[in-house]
Simulated assay, not measured.
Amino acid sequence: MFYERFSGAPLGRLNPLTVFAVCVIFFVGIATSFDPMFQISVVGVVLLVLVGIQRVPVLLVLALMVPFILFGMGFVTTNLLFRQDSDFAMHIAGGDNGGAALSAGLTLSLRALAIGTISILFALSVDPGAFVRALIAYLKFPARLGYALFVAMQLVPDLLAEAAQMRMARAMRAGRPVRRIPGPREMAALAVPLLAFAVRRAGRSAIAMEARGFGATPARTMVGVPGFSWADPAFLIAGSGVLVVLRLV
């Protein structure tokens, strides 16, 4: 996981719920604002935190932002090509001509980019396992769903490793090197074995949940629950203050 490379960064030492709360506050601020300069300011601040505080390489940040950039470009092209069907967005932009459609598309695209950068910050700052444990311990998240999330987090890398072993076995049997990118026929041949692997893992997980007595008692003991420190309220106040300043500027 990407998080493991930056687990020693400052934000990685905070309680996951604190980082999650600040991200939610920024999400609300972005969703309620149609000011392009505010969206640009949010993107700049988050990038500064990612590169300057979390020490995330710039190229990695840019690579992770590509899907959100493409998604934002979709708003621009939609408003330009189908502007008669986007009266609400053009009304927000302050006009009803082609220039307003472009302005509305850029505003919505900047919003998507701002939300994307905050999502990247959360993904690179929070340990998924610690986040789930914090949800169960502090917000009374159902333990069964939490364990299911743990299983899913372990299943994805195991599924990729199983697919790599299957591809290697097929290549050895055919007497050829393993292709870097599997073709359509190879992907179709791997679908059923991988599905069977996932079904077996699901059955084992269900047995494991029964063995651990999920649902037997309302109270459960947990280990490794992240705690709070003085840095958590400081980060919450600082994040809220930054958002207020960006909205007022």
Rank of each mutant, 00 (worst) to 15 (best):
F6W: 07
F6I: 00
G8D: 11
G8P: 11
L17N: 12
T18Q: 08
V19A: 11
F20Q: 15
V22C: 09
V24M: 12
V28H: 11
G29W: 02
A31I: 05
S33M: 05
S33I: 06
M37E: 12
I40P: 00
I40L: 15
S41L: 05
V42D: 03
G44P: 08
L47I: 02
G52F: 09
Q54F: 05
R55H: 14
V56K: 08
P57C: 06
V58W: 14
L59R: 15
L59D: 06
L60C: 02
L64I: 04
V66Q: 08
F68S: 13
F75C: 01
T77N: 01
Q84I: 00
S86K: 01
D87V: 12
F88W: 14
G94K: 00
D96R: 00
L113R: 09
A114N: 08
I115S: 14
I115T: 13
S119W: 04
I120Y: 02
L121R: 09
L121D: 07
F122T: 10
S125Y: 01
V126K: 04
V126T: 10
D127S: 14
A130R: 14
F131C: 06
R133P: 14
R133Q: 10
A134L: 05
L135C: 14
Y147R: 04
L149P: 15
V151C: 04
A152L: 07
D158M: 07
A161V: 12
E162M: 06
E162V: 03
M166P: 01
M168P: 01
R170T: 04
M172V: 03
R173H: 06
R173P: 03
A174M: 09
R176L: 08
R176F: 10
P177V: 04
P177N: 08
V178E: 11
R179W: 03
P182F: 06
M187I: 14
A188R: 03
L194T: 08
F197K: 02
R204S: 11
M209T: 10
M209H: 03
A211P: 04
F214M: 07
V225Y: 10
G227V: 06
G227M: 04
F228I: 06
W230L: 13
G239P: 11
G239M: 01
S240G: 15
V242T: 15
